[in-house]
Design a protein around this nucleic acid. Structure first.
Length: 861
RNA sequence: GCCCGGGUGGCGAAAUCGGUAGACGCAAGGGACUUAAAAUCCCUUGGGGGCAACCCCGUGCGGGUUCGAGUCCCGCCCCGGGCACCA
């Protein structure tokens, strides 16, 4: 049994012990890695390729902050771990330098972003080198490089060719300050994500990508573990964003201005506003509902104010009021309309439709709580069972009918299907799904809600009034930006030939350097002011045409950068087929969960389209994705406005990159992030000093004696660290290494074998320090050419184990017994224990619970 | 409102197929060395009681299951993030 006696032996350091000088060590190794191309795998001949990707930064003027460093260090640590496991790790880096961030900053300081960005990038390079990232700088890329965005434009053309890009006039979110269209996802609570101003609604002609065509695949793959091993939180965020709803599309036939019964149906033509192409002659109003079972309670219809059907249903006497309401709604932005629990407003159109279930004529209203972008832009209102419809019905005194009632708690009613209070007036909508039973619904009375959903849908389908369908919350992706700083969308407009794609041979459509790159509120990109750029011949007929002046969304740049990295040296193709086959899909991708939806969804979509077009052999880009946590300062996200941004440079200068890296990784769980408090940084530094001294001891030692308990601790450490690395539990891996160092010191063990193992396991965290240590230990090849240590399971377990003795569940003592001891032996030992005796004396032991090698619980009466 | 995380010492955190709560680190206190300081090394450090051996309490709150709960179940509270009139 281990004694508690102190066995620390002082190891007086020789006075000539080399001090640990991080500044010198780090400069030395960074230079050497560059000279020896240590971080540049042979992309064509690598035997075990491993593509280690991290989200590339936007090169801000401020440089990398601590949060970026945390993310990159965590990803780099993983890459280095994989390298030590024998993989040929490709770890590229680049810059996401287009976009509104850069442009806004450029406007602020009055310098063209084309001039500004290279400076920022230079600063980023310096910082990324300084932190010791294992980057393959041969393959650096910037999205603003014409050699890069040539292919971004090419991708646009591929989507166009595949019918996945289209143009339509649409209500868009307009930021009056940034003077640009915003994607819905860039609008936060009715305000611009970037400048916080209130967003308005405008109608502009926009390019869209048909991501909705892929909604089902994007959703299905999330469950396919063979394609996607992703952080659960990210998968959930995507699933919610896609927003699949099962339900039915139902048709309510009707006629404008006429009382429904017997009136001839008007034939209406839906415009292509939904982007699904022209709909031939549609009759009545189509709605999407998840509750077809409640159709008997549909007492009115509501159209979105923008719905093109509104005109047809509006009667002359109601037209003035309807038009006024529509105008009022259009003045509001798209988003604030959806915010909060606003009082519902609307107007009656004068029109009626027939409820296909009841045959009753019901009025058609318009209201802004119905959104044009979702479903069909129209709903059947069931005030009894939808809270929004309920509020609307109350306000406008429309009939509220109950068609679902709770099951009776009185089980004596037949088959448990008795119904509680079917005729008590509703005080709020009854929305309970599973527990409900149909009432006032003809032949469907008595069915449960799930049963009725199926039965009613089938019944309506038979009568040609509907069909089961699935709807998604996801909208098509607006990629147009009326801005300067982005890749021009490669389209030329010709009076005769319309929108003509720029021929691939003419790519890239270079972004001209213009003096006044500020947007104005014309809604047209500043590029339109550049005459010689703007006017070009039509590629089809050669007559004068005009360039598309919109640039594409920066999310398009980042949707494919991982495809470009391995192939940056090829100017004649976006991604080389052989390279792509060897390196993609990405093996590990690490990034922030703020990109859980947009970037990661768009990248998946672009990959799917390119796959379907035959350009890629895979259709999911990132095999493994892990979301890292956020570094906060004083409990708040770091931001310039809060003034709590921590710049890492001074910490690195003072403590060294390795100490800083270790501090960040030790701070807390990598996937959770944490609060940056620099008090703790001396801990990792002291730890490195101790290891430095141990390396010195190992060099001087002439024998390699390893006490058994040290050997056991070593194998336990290898196991714990290895398992921690794979799960990105860096903080506990470091803790395990610290424990091992404590053991070596307590046991005065200077075994070179033990110290080498330690140094190897430390290498992913402290690459410079361990490179130097490895050299001091007598190796003339890089530590990253060496192999990660393995553990012997037989040596992980100890021969003697401590078994806890409990009396009635309370710990009263512990005994040391050989591993695998029988209950009887442990019991005998336990009864020797004074404390155990005291608590069991004179009492009957009713029961004994024995967990081998763990505990023995004596339950007394 | 809905969906995710998360609440454990003075602080960052460990431990979740239920089995010694607080590993590892920071900070703090005491000591050694030193003319002194720094550095380094040693000891103490969840709260309470006791001279001590030891004892009681303790993982956001209230219940429950169990020989045994930080961990599982039910009902809440608080913090962080995301979504939000999605039919």
């Amino acid at each position: 049994m281990k004694t508690t006696e102190t066995r620390v032996k002082q190891n007086p350091r020789p006075s000539d012990e080399l001090p640990y000088r991080p500044d010198q060590v780090e400069a030395k190794w960074q230079a050497r890695w560059a000279e020896r191309h240590t971080n540049e795998p042979d992309l064509d001949r690598a035997a075990r390729p491993f593509y280690n990707l991290m989200m590339f930064p936007y090169p801000s003027a401020e440089g990398l902050h601590v949060g970026n460093m945390f993310a990159f260090t965590g990803a780099d640590t993983y890459g280095r771990f994989k390298r030590l496991q024998g993989f040929d790790v490709f770890e590229p880096i680049g810059f996401d330098a287009f976009g509104i961030h850069s442009e806004n900053y450029a406007i602020k300081v009055g310098i063209n972003p084309a001039e500004l960005i290279p400076r920022n990038i230079e600063n980023f390079r310096r910082q990324l080198r300084r932190i010791g990232g294992m980057f393959d700088w041969r393959h650096e890329l910037s999205t603003t490089d014409p050699k890069y965005y040539k292919w971004t434009q090419w991708i646009f053309l591929q989507l166009l060719k595949a019918g996945k890009a289209y143009k339509k006039a649409a209500a868009v979110n307009w930021c009056p300050k940034d003077k640009t269209v915003l994607a819905n996802e860039q609008v936060i609570n009715g305000r611009c994500e970037r400048c916080d101003s209130l967003v308005e609604q405008r109608f502009l002609s926009q390019w869209f990508f048909r991501i909705t065509d892929y909604a089902d695949r994007l959703l299905a793959d999330l469950d396919d573990k063979s394609k996607m091993d992703w952080s659960e939180s990210t998968v959930l965020a995507q699933r919610n964003w896609l927003g699949r709803s099962e339900g039915a599309e139902l048709v309510f036939s009707g006629a404008a201005g006429q009382e429904g019964r017997g009136a001839a149906n008007v034939t209406l033509t839906l415009s292509a506003a939904k982007g699904k192409g022209p709909k031939p002659r549609e009759t009545g109003i189509r709605v999407f509902t998840t509750r077809p079972d409640t159709i008997f309670g549909a007492t009115f219809m509501v159209l979105a104010p923008e719905n093109p059907l509104v005109d047809a249903f509006t009667t002359d006497d109601r037209r003035a009021e309807v038009d006024a309401y529509r105008k009022m709604v259009a003045a509001k932005d798209l988003v604030s309309r959806k915010v909060g629990e606003r009082e519902k407003t609307g107007v009656f159109t004068g029109g009626f439709v027939t409820n296909p279930a009841t045959g009753q004529s019901i009025p058609v209203w318009i209201a802004d709580y119905v959104l044009m972008e979702y479903g069909t832009g129209a709903i059947m209102a069931v005030p009894g069972h939808d809270q929004r419809d309920f509020e609307f019905a109350r306000r406008y005194r429309l009939p509220i009918v109950r068609v679902v009632a709770p099951r009776s708690p009185d089980e004596s009613s037949r088959a448990g299907r008795g119904i509680a209070d079917p005729d008590v007036p509703l005080e709020e909508a009854y929305t309970e799904n599973e527990q409900g039973v149909l009432v006032h619904s003809g032949q469907f009375d008595g069915l449960t809600v799930p049963e009725a959903k199926r039965a009613v849908t089938a019944w309506l389908a038979e009568r040609g009034a509907g069909k089961a369908t699935i709807n998604y919350r996801l909208h098509d992706w607006t990629i147009s930006r009326q801005r300067y700083w982005g890749p021009p969308i490669p389209i030329i407009y010709c009076d005769e030939h319309g929108a003509v794609p720029v021929p691939e041979k003419d790519l890239p459509v270079e972004l001209p350097i213009i003096e006044d790159f500020r947007p104005d509120d014309s809604g047209i990109s500043p590029l339109a002011r550049h005459e010689s750029w703007y006017h070009v011949p039509c590629p089809v007929c050669g007559k004068q045409g005009r360039r598309e002046t919109d640039v594409s969304d920066t999310f398009l740049d980042s949707a494919w950068y991982h495809l470009r990295y391995p192939s940056t040296e090829f100017d004649d193709r976006p991604f080389d087929p052989a390279r792509t086959r060897k390196w993609l899909p990405v093996d590990s991708y690490i990034g922030g969960n703020e990109h859980a939806v947009l970037h990661l969804l768009y990248a998946r979509f672009v990959t799917m389209v390119l796959h379907d077009l035959g350009h890629l052999h895979f259709d999911e880009p990132y095999r493994k994705f892990r979301a890292h946590g956020t570094i906060v300062k004083d409990g708040a996200k770091m931001s310039k406005s809060r003034g709590n941004v921590v710049i890492p440079d001074e910490y690195i200068a003072q403590w060294g990159a390795d100490t800083f890296r270790m501090y960040l990784m030790f701070l807390g769980p990598f996937q959770e992030g944490g609060d940056f408090r620099d008090e703790g940084i001396s801990g990792p530094r002291r730890f490195l000093e101790k290891v430095w001294a141990l390396v010195g001891d190992a060099i001087r030692t002439s024998h390699d004696k390893i006490p058994h308990n040290v050997l056991v601790k070593y194998h336990q450490t290898v196991k714990r660290v290895t398992e921690g690395m794979e799960q990105l539990h860096y903080n506990t891996s470091i803790a395990a290494l610290m424990e091992f160092v404590n053991t070596l010191r307590e046991e005065a063990c200077t075994s070179p074998a033990m110290v080498e193992g330690l140094v190897l396991m430390l290498a992913p965290f402290a690459p410079h320090f361990t490179s130097e240590s490895w050299e001091r230990l007598g190796h003339d090849t890089s530590i990253f050419e060496a192999r990660w240590p393995e553990w012997d399971e037989a040596l992980v377990v100890e021969d003697q184990v401590e078994v806890v003795i409990q009396v009635s569940g309370k710990t009263r003592g512990r005994v040391s017994v050989p591993r695998g001891a029988e209950q009887g032996a442990v019991l005998a030992a336990a009864q020797e224990d004074a404390a155990v005796r005291r608590f069991t004396e004179g009492k009957e032991v009713r029961k004994v619970v024995y967990v081998p090698n763990r505990l023995l619980n004596l339950v007394v009466g």
